[in-house]
Simulated assay, not measured.
Amino acid sequence: MKKRIISPLIPEHQPLVIAGPCSAETEEQVLETAKALKQDQRVNVFRAGVWKPRTRPGSFEGNGSKALPWLQRVKTEVGLPVAIEVANVKHVYEALKAGIDILWIGARTSANPFAVQEIAEALAGVDIPVLVKNPVNPDVALWLGALERLEKKGIKDLGAIHRGVSQFEKSTLRNKPAWQMAIKFREEVPTIPIINDPSHITGNRELIGSIAQTALDLNFDGLMIETHPNPDEAWSDASQQVTPEQLSCILDQLIIRTDETPYTVQKNIDELRNSINYIDDQILELLQFRMNVALNIARFKKENNMTIFQAERWNELLLKNKAKGEKLGLTPTFVSKVYRTIHQESIDNQGKIFSDVINV
């Protein structure tokens, strides 16, 4: 199925690039940024935060409707389509009245089905592209649900924005990328474009390029990168914004992959994939064999009045396999995840033996 295209300005074999400041601070700042971005023909859409609800009150929360005429000037004088975030029905009405080209729904709003439903109803019958950021928590169903609510109200030009998920632990990244979440989304709805937001994932302008490259390597359809003429003086999220010149440098360094490969290259990769397929078959057969052994162990435990879970045995097994995996070049985290999943399935199956649910 052909993907829905958010903007007719996307060059062939190039990612959609949405850029602009985190917040529309002043009319001068908005126009200065837009004019600088216009110099790079790879920038397709200008973005700016108009309503900026912050995590805690007291910091700059945007200029609101006052900033909408500034974006109108970007459209008419600079010639870039404009995009803003909307979080409620009032925002939607004011954005439509101002002729905003693209709307996006933020991560906090997409986590609230009631808010998304109200926005969808306000947009019923309106022909405008709408992008939905993934919720702050790693819930693909909630993300998909937000898009489905919009689709049911007749919004056909939809896109997704992947901005990572919140994390409690301190990290070099502001948000956990949760790439698997985006991959799962792509599997569920392959026709809806996904745009990566490396600014919010990193929270650090120095790391934006590497995250953006990873997104393109995963076949994302575009990037949304916060850009400001003087990032260190920005009124919000200063550390994650880049100058227009820095944005151009980031785009220069990105490698644009393609899924259209010459015959000889395709033949070579097909051979490697056949090897993967063979290995996967072996893994599945070994897992089946292992589960059958676990069922025999369960019968032995039941006959001898032993508990299903043996903590000492499990800890010994996990430590041994993590150490062996590390010698083979596998990270302890990866080995732990694999064996915890296998062990849980084994525990579940042994539980069925104990309750006589199955008898195989």
Rank of each mutant, 00 (worst) to 15 (best):
T172N: 10
T76S: 15
F60Q: 06
C22V: 12
T26K: 03
I100S: 04
R313M: 10
L158D: 02
Q282P: 00
D221I: 06
P57K: 09
N277D: 15
S275G: 10
R56H: 08
I255A: 11
R257F: 08
P81R: 02
N315M: 13
G329F: 05
V265H: 10
Q240G: 06
K327E: 12
N134W: 04
T243H: 03
V360P: 12
R174I: 02
M181Y: 00
A160P: 04
V86Y: 00
V78S: 02
K75C: 06
G329V: 05
A294F: 08
L207A: 11
V357R: 11
N204I: 04
L68M: 08
F220G: 07
I297E: 13
N315T: 06
N305H: 15
A120L: 07
P332D: 05
L216Q: 01
I119D: 03
D348S: 09
I128V: 12
I195G: 06
A298I: 07
L142D: 00
K267T: 14
S236Q: 06
P15D: 04
V265M: 11
G209D: 07
S336H: 14
D237I: 08
I128A: 02
E27I: 04
P21L: 01
I256N: 07
K320D: 14
I347T: 14
A19P: 07
P113D: 10
A34G: 06
K90Y: 08
R56L: 11
D101Y: 00
S110G: 03
I161N: 01
A36V: 02
K267Y: 09
Y278M: 12
P190Y: 06
T264I: 11
A87V: 12
W143S: 07
L272G: 00
V86T: 07
D356Q: 13
R108F: 11
N315Y: 10
V45W: 05
D281W: 11
N274T: 12
I161Y: 00
V74K: 02
A141R: 13
R186A: 15
N63E: 15
E25D: 13
W51K: 02
L286K: 12
G125T: 08
D197I: 09
D280V: 12
R174T: 03
R149C: 05
T333Y: 11
A160H: 09
V126E: 12
R174Q: 12
V30M: 08
Q310H: 15
N137L: 13
F46Y: 15
L80W: 06
A87I: 15
L207H: 09
I201Y: 05
R290W: 11
D348I: 10
I102L: 13
A323H: 10
L286G: 08
V30E: 03
P190C: 04
G64D: 09
N230S: 13
G325W: 09
Q14G: 00
L144A: 06
W179N: 02
D101I: 02
L158Y: 05
Q241R: 04
R149H: 02
I211C: 07
V50M: 03
E28L: 10
E61Q: 15
T214C: 14
E233P: 01
Q167I: 13
V45T: 01
L251G: 09
I283C: 11
I211P: 01
V89H: 04
Q282K: 13
L103C: 01
E28P: 00
L9C: 03
D197Y: 07
P57F: 00
G79Q: 08
D281Q: 15
R205P: 04
D40V: 02
A323S: 13
T331W: 00
Q310S: 14
S171Y: 05
C22Q: 06
L147T: 02
Y278C: 08
A107T: 10
